[in-house]
Design a protein around this nucleic acid. Sequence first.
RNA 1: GGGCUCGUAGCUCAGCCAGGCAGAGCAGCGGCCUUUUAAGCCGCUGGUCGCGGGUUCAAAUCCCGUCGAGCCCGCCA
Length: 494
Amino acid sequence: MHWADKVAEELLRRGDKHRIATGITPSGHIHLGNLREMLTADAVRRALEDRGGKVKIIYIADTFDPLRKRYPFLPAEYDKYVGMPLSRIPCPCGEHKNYAEHFLEPFLESLKILGIDVEVKRADRMYKEGEYEKAIKIALREKEKIKKILEEVTGKKCDESWSPFMPICENCGRINSTKVTGFNEKHVHYVCECGHEGEVSYREGKLGWRIDWPARWGILNITCEPMGKDHAAAGGSYDTGKRLAREVFEIEPPYPVVYEWIHLKGVGAMKSSKGVVVPVREMVEVLPPEIVRYIIIRSKPERHIDFDPATLLDLIDEFEEAYTRKDRSVELSLVEKVNYCKVPFRHLVVVGQIANWNFNRVIEILRRTEYDVDVEDVKRRMSYAKKWLEKFAPERMKFEVRDIKEINVDFSKKELEFLRKFAEEVKNDMKADDLHNLVYVVASRVGIKPAKAFNAIYKAVLGKNYGPRAGYFMESLGTDWIKKRFIKVVELRS
RNA sequence: GGGCUCGUAGCUCAGCCAGGCAGAGCAGCGGCCUUUUAAGCCGCUGGUCGCGGGUUCAAAUCCCGUCGAGCCCGCCA
């Protein structure tokens, strides 16, 4: 059984209405690793819906988190924003409302493309609009109890001035430098490292992460939450959250789905703080959404994924094969009612190049070479094939059918003879195999090594020594075209 | 020190929850009219299921132990 179905069945034992929380922080480029949280949630959502459950995914964007440090991708002037909430830091490119939105907006666009329907909650607004107020009051009142739980579970001492609530300093704007000195029904008093002393309302500050998390479970009625393995470690924030939920906020903690990290092949774990990322927004430009989803959904959450752009084509092959047997991972990955016809993505990459990405020509070639085409599907995937080629493909795979005038390479006598003979022998109804075989036949008749014969073909068409597998390449180009081209090349050189 | 995950064919992994003849893809080898390239077809090779014990008519699967690898344990997916 698929992992998402197992989780769904477990959840259904608890009830048939669920609210799944996700919580990626927009502190840097949101990447494939982060996406695992959303796709884990989405796969579970679908599995639940397939069984008649009611589900909603809530995405709490931690826009209120302080900037931890100046990340390598930020200019030096951002030093002064360290410690301030992401929602109050200027946008790096100047086009978004603030720092958090700069990273959040492209990510939300990606979620749309990927068919992940979420209710977005921005943490800064939740605090500002008072959604946390009750929880903050409970936390301040129960400070000693919370402290005790944290110390018991983590085995570490909280220091004397520890507080569950972190006010924003009115003077320096930082959220991680204040110490709470007292509170009443309306205000929280604090002193800040910057020397300022003052008071803020319950809406001008946030709970520390370990308290914030269980608090939001209660506020949003969360029943299930995927989390990175860091949270799930013994003494980690899920352990403390679980107890705080029950003993302080008096709610049941959500059902956890722990997932592993995604590594970039040969590079290591993706870390937005280190700039090791493939931003999700870029991936969804280049790959069909169902493929992006499949990369993650096909693996159990607890397994590492080593993402290797070099093997993407193999993965797409696998997807296409799995599609035909209605594999569950594929089912959970498809976004809309796309109808995959039997034209491999791999093939589109070649045919697209032959046709110079002219859609009508692509269709014409596919039809002539006896593919069953679904026009809409080909159109959609062809555009991805083009982008994939530009972004991920190795140079060897790229080629361009040249105009005859652009063929400036030299041909040996034998090569020309081969081309001439080949043109004579080509019959219009020849298929890929026939053409491939004909190369050997003519080569041996002319007394030229097959490898040289292939070179001649590629040179005559592409102006270089190599190209796609010759038989089907020539079939795609059309026997008639090939014949004319070869004759022309020979003419021009004799 | 604590925790999680992984260990099955050369490589990537499925199968384990719910015990019943050890699987797939890739790679390799052979063939498809003697040969190229990241798309083909047919066939073949290839595994003490990390190791040791236990339960069982029967264990890759369940239990106990052990070794190895990776990661996590202020914040982080």
